[in-house]
């Protein structure tokens, strides 16, 4: 059953950056796009189990900190070579400066 979970306050994530969020033994990554929108994906790379939140966000892209596999964090699409399995994405909503993700 899906539920909305409080992930962080929106100020916790700089624009064009990412933050790790753990819940129920699972890691998520929450993103603040350069346009000021928020997104969420699985926290671990689909190549090896590496925390994506240690990676660099550029525009719509999160780059894995280990082998630079790239994903579009808005759609979860894997963008080639090292990563070929897409990332799972999750719905998010902002209420009173708090970011919730639906897991």
């Amino acid at each position: 059953m899906s539920q909305w979970i409080e992930a962080c306050v929106t100020d916790d994530i700089d624009a064009e950056d990412v933050l790790r969020f753990d819940y129920g033994g699972h890691s998520y990554a929450v993103y603040h796009s350069p346009e000021g929108e928020f997104y969420a994906t699985d926290g671990l790379c689909t190549h090896e189990k590496v925390q994506l939140a240690d990676g660099l966000v550029m525009d719509n892209i999160i780059e894995c900190p280990k082998h630079n596999g790239r994903f579009n964090y808005k759609t979860g699409a894997a963008l080639g070579a090292t990563v070929c399995v897409n990332l799972k994405t999750y719905p998010v909503k902002v209420e009173n400066n708090t970011l919730y993700i639906q897991v």
Partner: peptide, 11 residues
């Protein structure tokens, strides 16, 4: 620890 410095090195 792990990939803690990855972002800085990538930049």
């Amino acid at each position: 620890v792990a990939t803690a410095v990855a972002k800085a090195i990538r930049i």
